[in-house]
Each structure stands twice: as structure tokens, then as C-alpha cells.
Design a protein around this nucleic acid. Structure first.
Lengths: 259, 259
DNA sequence: CGAAGTTTTGAGGACCTTCAAAAGTTGTGG
DNA sequence: CCACAACTTTTGAAGGTCCTCAAAACTTCG
């Protein structure tokens, strides 16, 4: 998987466009965004709790997680972000980060200054709407995670997480057929599902034994989608892949003065 | 606690204003919003999963929760909303609701048509920003809940939830001193913390025994804030009570054409 | 090739659940 | 205003899921 900066920005624009329909002006404005590429090694923190960032990070390549850490030393991963996602879009409005951002692979991001993004959102109502929608999907995924951790047992939890990642990779065209690279350790999966690494190990063995998944190194294959979906109670609605509600033409979220 | 419609809308406007500073024009525009009051009995569903709502609901009086229900019959509450909160602000952009809304007391809400709210957001950038910020705080609270359910034990979980509610009630000026009405059953607390009602009961007894809280019917008193905070690892940052980052004056999230 | 990290396995135990029933509270209709 | 039903809280006992600790096997990487 190789991406250059152009395709990273493109991926982002395509995602926004699929979701809400971006005007061609908005698209070219986004393409003109000043960005600065930055590389991170594996297992680095892109941001820390308490930071007051001035830039948003668009993931070009790699996999990152957002996490909260507790005084006890334990960690809860609250989301994964894949190429085309903006990490910390919320930082546009929220001053102080309430969570950290961690790389799970070598990662390149495009840094976009808050001011630049604000300006484009100001000039292009459809961009503002698309960005807002993005944060709403983020929230919906988070609600699903709360449900996952709160009310499902270990097997269901893990199955649900793996299905979510598979569906998101598919939607982002990062995955062919049923197999994808999942560069997460069992400890990472544990931090995302509220389990221990040991129990993740045993649960994965069970999923493999039931022929629901197959693993080969860091490659994961969903062997039996239907059984996985049934087991996990997985329903893609919460990912809101269908895009936002479009206001009637004269009811734009944001309108220019006259018109 | 008695509220009329006027104070409900006021409460909402005050909250937005505290958070971001609303222009006086924006405030009066919001005050002029056409609303329709609607009453719900206790234990009713204001909305269901799969709904496609056309209105947002501003809570005037009462306590409601948003929840997801699983095929297994269990339920996960993903947030509580109190007077001055808008439930389903996300429905402005997200077509199909991924969760239900349930009343825990008799509740009155002000229904605000999506179109009306969109229009005001379109004309007043500071309103659009305030609404967006509101959804971001919602997401931040959800991340904290995921962490709570995923990585804290029963005592910490329950303490954390009670502290959050106490702090939010205080911020909304719905609570004097350390005592407030909490019209939730132990089963409700269980659904919010991912526990069983039985274990909530035992955990509450422990909290009472340690003199951390006191209960009298549906009245809850935080007896020892400091010990509760330490126990739960509670830090108010995630509630973002300080309000949003304000873009530089010519860098508004949304700008009128000329200016 | 050695060191560090990851996966796997085992054993014991803790936390929390489940089931069941009693005690207490609230709400409703006669 | 009492009686009764429905709900909520409380208690007990038994058991299962998941955790902790520990160590071995395996993999990755410099």
C-alpha cells in the first residue's frame, strides 16, 4: 500500500464528496489547501492529552488510535483512524485535547492549519457541513463502542471490532475481498475492547476455531461474515456510510450574505 | 423545580453563550425560534432507533437518556440529557437515528424544526459554531463513557457517572450545594455503566458505607467530593465547560459574503 | 544472533453475574 | 383512603467470565 500526498488529500475529498456532495469549487479549494507532510515512526504519539493543537492531521498512510490513559496505567483506545480520516477535527473548536493520538504503524500525515480549514469552511458551506458530519459519525462510532464494551461479552466485542474495521477498510477501498492488514497487537485489541491481552488471545483462538476468522501474521481474513455479524449483532447503520442529510437548496447550513 | 418554555429556551441560549459568546443578534434570532411544546410521560420513548426525525428536541424539564438496545434484550444508555440540552442535534445532518431516546421523568420538550435551526445557523455563524461545539462535547463525553465502562471497576464506574451528573447539574444551575434529584433506578444506572442492577445495588451500598455519597429516595448527595474524585479518577476536562476556541475575528467558521 | 516484543499456555482467584426470593416503595382504582 | 398490583431495592448463594501472575514458545528487528 503506497500513497502519496496527492492521493491522501484525494481520499479525503472523495470521502467527503461521497457523503454529502461537494461543489466543484469546494473540491478545488480543498485541493489547494496548504499542507505540510509529516512522518511518524511506529509507536509514537502524534498528540498528547492536554495539548492545544493548531493543526489538524489528515492521515495519508498508516493506522493510528486515539486513546485515554488512566492513572492506574491502563489505557482505553476510543477510536482508530485510517487513511483519509482527519484526526482531531474536533480540535478546530475544542481548545484542549482530552485524549492522545498514537501510531500503530509508520505513519505520514498532512498537517492542515486550523485557520486554513476554518477559512475554507467559512467560504464553502458544503465543506462546513461535511466536516460537521464527519464529527457526528465519529460520535456515532463512539456510542457503538460504549455499547460494545458495556453490554457484549468478549467474543461479541472482539468480533464487532474486527467487523467495524473490515467494513471501514472496505469503504475506504483499502481492502480487497475479505483480507486486510491489521497492524494491531493483541494488547492493542485489548485496549480497544476493554479486555486483557491474555483474554484477547483466548478469544481470538475461539474465533479461529469456529472458522469465523483467519489470521496470518498481521493479516486478518473474515472467513464467515454472516456468522460474525450474527455473533456480534453488527449492523452498519451507525457508520452512516450513506452520508448526511442534505438541506433543501435554499436551506443551507451556511449561506452567503445575499442569495 | 419549575420551568416554563421561556426559561427552557433561555437556559439553552445561556449555555451556548457561556460557551462561545453569542452575538446579540444571534441570541434574539434564537429567541424568535418557532417552537412547539410537547409533553411526555415518564418511561416513554421520545424517539426510536431507525427514526428519521424532522425536529430537534430541546429539553425544558425532565431527564432523558439516549440508549441502544441489543437483540439479547439488554440495553446500553449512552448519555443523559438534562434541561437546556438538545437531544438529537445530530439529526440535523444524520438521516437515520442510531439510538432511541427515553424519558426517566415526566418531560416537556420544545420541538424545533430542522429547517428553522438550519436557517439560523446559516445566518449566524456563531450559532453554527456553538451547535457544532455542542455535538463535539457530546462526543467527548461519549469517549469518557467508553473509557469508564472499558477500564474502570464497578466502584469507579458508578462514582464517575454520579460525579459527571453532579457536575453537569451544577453547571446547568439545577443543583444547590451537593444534593440533587436523580430520578434513576438502579437498573438505569446499570444500563449506563454496563453493570447489572444487583451489582449496582451492592456498589451503591459500598459507596454509602464509605461515606462518599448519601441517598434519600431519589435524592443524591455527594458527601465527599475529593474522595469520589480520587476514586473515580474524575477530571472535568472532558466536559469542556470552558467553551469553544474562538477563531480570530476574521477567521470565522462561517462568514458572510462580503465583510 | 541476541534482545525486545508478542503470542501462547497454565493455574488460581476475583469480580461480577445469574437466579431466586423477600422486603420495601410507589402508584392506581375501587 | 385503603388495598392491591407493579415496581424497586435488598439479600443470599452459586457459578462463570474474565483477570492476574508467571513462564515458555515464537517472532521481529537491529
Amino acid at each position: 500500500m503506497v500513497y502519496n500526498e496527492y492521493s491522501a488529500l484525494s481520499r479525503f475529498i472523495i470521502k467527503l464528496d461521497q457523503r454529502g456532495g461537494l461543489s466543484t469549487q469546494a473540491q478545488s479549494a480543498l485541493r489547494g489547501l496548504p499542507t505540510r507532510a509529516r512522518s511518524f515512526k511506529i509507536h509514537q504519539d502524534i498528540a498528547r492529552e492536554g495539548d492545544r493543537p493548531t493543526h489538524c492531521c489528515l492521515i495519508a498512510t498508516g493506522l493510528v488510535s486515539r486513546y485515554r490513559s488512566l492513572r492506574s496505567g491502563s489505557r482505553q483506545i476510543v477510536s482508530f483512524q485510517i487513511p483519509g480520516d482527519i484526526v482531531d477535527l474536533q480540535s478546530l473548536l475544542v481548545v484542549v485535547a482530552d485524549h492522545g493520538v498514537h501510531t500503530h504503524t509508520a505513519t505520514t500525515v498532512l498537517m492542515i492549519a486550523h485557520d486554513d480549514l476554518s477559512n475554507i469552511a467559512a467560504e464553502h458551506p458544503d465543506v462546513a457541513r461535511a466536516l460537521w458530519f464527519d464529527t457526528l459519525v465519529d460520535a456515532a462510532i463512539c456510542r457503538e463502542w460504549t455499547t460494545n464494551v458495556g453490554r457484549r461479552d468478549a467474543r461479541q466485542r472482539l468480533a464487532h471490532l474486527l467487523l467495524e474495521l473490515a467494513v471501514r477498510f472496505k469503504a475506504a477501498k483499502l481492502m480487497a475481498v475479505d483480507t486486510f492488514e491489521l497492524p494491531l497487537t493483541q494488547a492493542d485489541l485489548a485496549d480497544a475492547t476493554g479486555m486483557t491481552a491474555v483474554h484477547v488471545n483466548r478469544t481470538l483462538q475461539w474465533l479461529r476455531g469456529e472458522r469465523l476468522i483467519r489470521t496470518d501474521g498481521r493479516t486478518l481474513t473474515i472467513e464467515n461474515w454472516e456468522a460474525m455479524r450474527t455473533l456480534a449483532g453488527f449492523d452498519t447503520t451507525y457508520l452512516h456510510l450513506e452520508g448526511p442529510r442534505i438541506p433543501k437548496k435554499d436551506m443551507r447550513l451556511v449561506s452567503r450574505e445575499a442569495s
